[in-house]
Every structure is written in C-alpha cells, then in structure tokens.
C-alpha cells in the first residue's frame, strides 16, 4: 500500500476521490433524496454520523475481527449505527424522518460506507480512519447538496424554501421528479468530463510549446 499523509487521507475523499461524483458509490441515496436541499442535508448528516462511528469502531476492533467473517462484522457494525441514526432522527427531526422514510434504513446498503471500512479502516489506526471517514462524509455532503441545490432551484424556483425568482418563474417540475435526478447527475458528470478534457488539451499544448 502506498504511503499517504494524514492530510491526504482527509482531503482525498472530499474531491479527488469523491464517493458519488468520481467513484459512483452510494448512488441510491444521492438520487433518491436530493429533490430538496433540506432532505439532502438530513441524509448527509445521517450518513456522516454512520460512517464516522463505524470507521472508529472498525479500526479500533480490527485486531479482534477474524478475516473470514470481516464483511459480515462490518455490516453488523454499520447496521447498529444506522438503527441509532434512525432513532435519533425520529426523536429530534420527525418531519425529516417522515420525508426520508425508508431511505434512512437503506444507508445500511450504501456501498460507500462498507467500501471505506474494507479499504481503509481495516488497515489503519483510529485517528487516520476517522480523518478518512470525515473526508468521505464531507465529499458525500458536497455532492448531495450540489444535486439538491440544482434540483430545488430549477424544480421549484427556491433554495432552502426561500423563493428566488418571484411568482413569475415557471418551475421545471421534471427536475424534482425521479427523471430529474438521473438527468442532473448525468449533466454534472458531462460538465466534469468537459473540464477534464480541457485540462488535458491544455497540458498537451503547453508540453508541445515548451519542449
């Protein structure tokens, strides 16, 4: 395994290896609950809680988990914290809990969380695993809020329920419907591909100009 510094562990998940936009993990929640910024924030908060707690627990108990049953052990740890998150949301934010519905329980099968346990927490110490989990959580939040923002602004003409364009705005209802989720993520990926391509041509051009 290549050596990384703690700050790299932290930053990596935020942009360069963003779980949703680059690695395409955890797409279910990213598409299903991002029809408003508020839902996106509630979902990211729950996921953030689960990934941080499970990373800490898995990395501190890694010596006691036999290699053969490690995946089941990780899933059990994750399921425990999802149950906790579910109960906490139900107690303190009942409205959001109702709106997100079954998708809170579905955090268990978010491949992003299991992926971080298997790829990072199982091999590193508690401090580094926590940094990695926080970074990945922030990356997930950025992606979700970005999508939620696009979809809410275009689909209802408001941001966090504050009206932006006044009464004359004709909302693009399609953006808050399921089809809008696929289209938004698709167009974000196209834009990222475009930027990437521009960067590549620029570097080849400069390389040719200065031999």
């Amino acid at each position: 395994m290549r050596k990384t510094t703690p700050s790299q562990d932290f930053i990596r998940g935020i942009w360069n290896e963003n779980p949703v936009l680059i690695q395409m993990l955890g797409l279910c929640p990213a598409l299903a609950v991002t029809n408003s910024v508020k839902n996106a924030l509630a979902m990211s908060a729950a996921t953030f809680f689960v990934i941080c707690c499970s990373s800490v627990l898995v990395s501190s108990c890694k010596r006691f988990i036999p290699n053969e049953v490690r995946i089941s052990a990780y899933i059990l740890v994750i399921a425990t914290f999802v149950t906790l998150a579910d109960m906490l949301l139900q107690a303190y934010a009942p409205v959001q809990h109702k709106e997100l519905g079954a998708f809170i329980a579905l955090i268990v099968v978010n491949c992003m969380i299991l992926g971080r346990q298997e790829a990072f927490s199982a091999k590193n110490n508690v401090y580094r695993s926590l940094l990695d989990a926080i970074g990945t959580g922030i990356g997930f939040t950025i992606a979700l809020v970005m999508m939620g923002g696009f979809r809410e602004i275009l689909g209802t003409g408001s941001f966090l329920e504050y009206s932006l364009f006044g009464a004359n705005f004709e909302p693009w209802v399609i953006m808050v419907l399921p089809a809008g989720g696929f289209l938004t993520l698709g167009f974000i990926l196209l834009a990222m591909g475009f930027v990437e391509q521009r960067k590549k041509t620029k570097t080849t051009l400069t390389a040719e100009q200065s031999p």
Binding site: L183, L189, L190, G193, F194
Partner: peptide, 13 residues
C-alpha cells in the same frame, strides 16, 4: 466527454 457513466445516466433519465 459523454462516453461512460454520464451517457448511461442520461439514457436512464
């Protein structure tokens, strides 16, 4: 730029 996941997502939409 559309090759890969971007295209799949737009078809899915």
């Amino acid at each position: 730029i559309a090759k890969g996941t971007g295209l799949v997502l737009i078809i899915a939409g």
